[in-house]
Computed example of a mutant assay.
Amino acid sequence: MEYLGYLASIVIGLSLGLIGGGGSILTIPILVYLFKVNPELATSYSLFIVGITSITGSFSHYKMGNLQLKSALVFAIPSIVSILIIREVIFPQIANTLFTIASYTVSKNLLIMIVFSVLMILASISMIKKRPEKDSFTETNFTQLAIIGFVVGIVTGFLGAGGGFLIIPALLFFANLPMKQAVGTSLLIISINSIIGFAGDVYIGTPIDYKFLITISIMAFIGMLIGTQLSKKIDGSKLKPLFGWFVLVMGIYIIVKELFF
């Protein structure tokens, strides 16, 4: 299962490099089901893996001229605030056992996986659904961009997911960016959010296996390089629906497995 996990880790980077999102959606299931990492710890590991991989991808997109720094910062700053509130204040206060119904116990780890699977299903719908063409406006709505940034930070903080499926539509419709620039800018935002979230976890004493993390990150890094190069030749938006169907099946599988097995 570990070898399968390392192979699957390449797909994390491949997805991030090619379509600017989706990689973090795969990271938690890979860590939990293939490497048997505790779900709560997996959210911390996911932040590191996705953050490091996204930094590499955003640098590659910067060299290709696909980064809009101002839009990225307007989005990322409120995201950072909500991430730190969730991970350093709210998350540690959630009890390991939430409640019991008859003989069925709802734990913190179960809550993480169920909420994450719902996120996967929502993300898959976003990927599958064909986006309407953008209006002809050229002005960036920085207020709405910042609000969405705060919301994405909540998702990232609770689940360790980068939120690329939310970031890219925001950049397309509120920052008025072309698809390739939205992908590159999304990677920069994801890297900022994820690394700061992980740094916060280290600060509060979360136990980290750095050797394991670096190994997974190297595999994801290889996938990122491949995905970034492929993005020059392949339109990632055309591959997104196919990836969306895969994420949908995975989300349903997690719900069934966690609730009934």
Rank of each mutant, 00 (worst) to 15 (best):
Y6P: 04
A8Q: 01
I10V: 13
V11P: 01
G13D: 04
L16E: 06
L16M: 14
L16G: 02
L18P: 06
G21E: 08
G21S: 14
G22D: 02
L26I: 10
L31D: 08
Y33Q: 05
L34P: 07
F48G: 13
I55R: 14
T56V: 13
L69A: 09
S71F: 01
F75A: 08
F75L: 13
A76N: 03
I77R: 06
R87A: 03
Q93S: 13
F99Y: 12
I101M: 04
T105N: 09
V106C: 11
L110C: 03
M113R: 02
I114Q: 07
K129D: 07
R131T: 13
T138E: 07
I147S: 10
V151E: 03
T156F: 03
L159F: 01
G163M: 09
G163C: 09
F165Y: 12
L166K: 03
I167Y: 02
F174R: 11
N176Y: 00
L177T: 04
Q181S: 14
V183M: 13
S186F: 05
S194V: 02
T215S: 14
I222S: 07
M224K: 04
K233F: 02
I234W: 13
G236R: 09
F243H: 02
V247N: 01
V249I: 14
V256D: 00
K257V: 14
F260S: 06
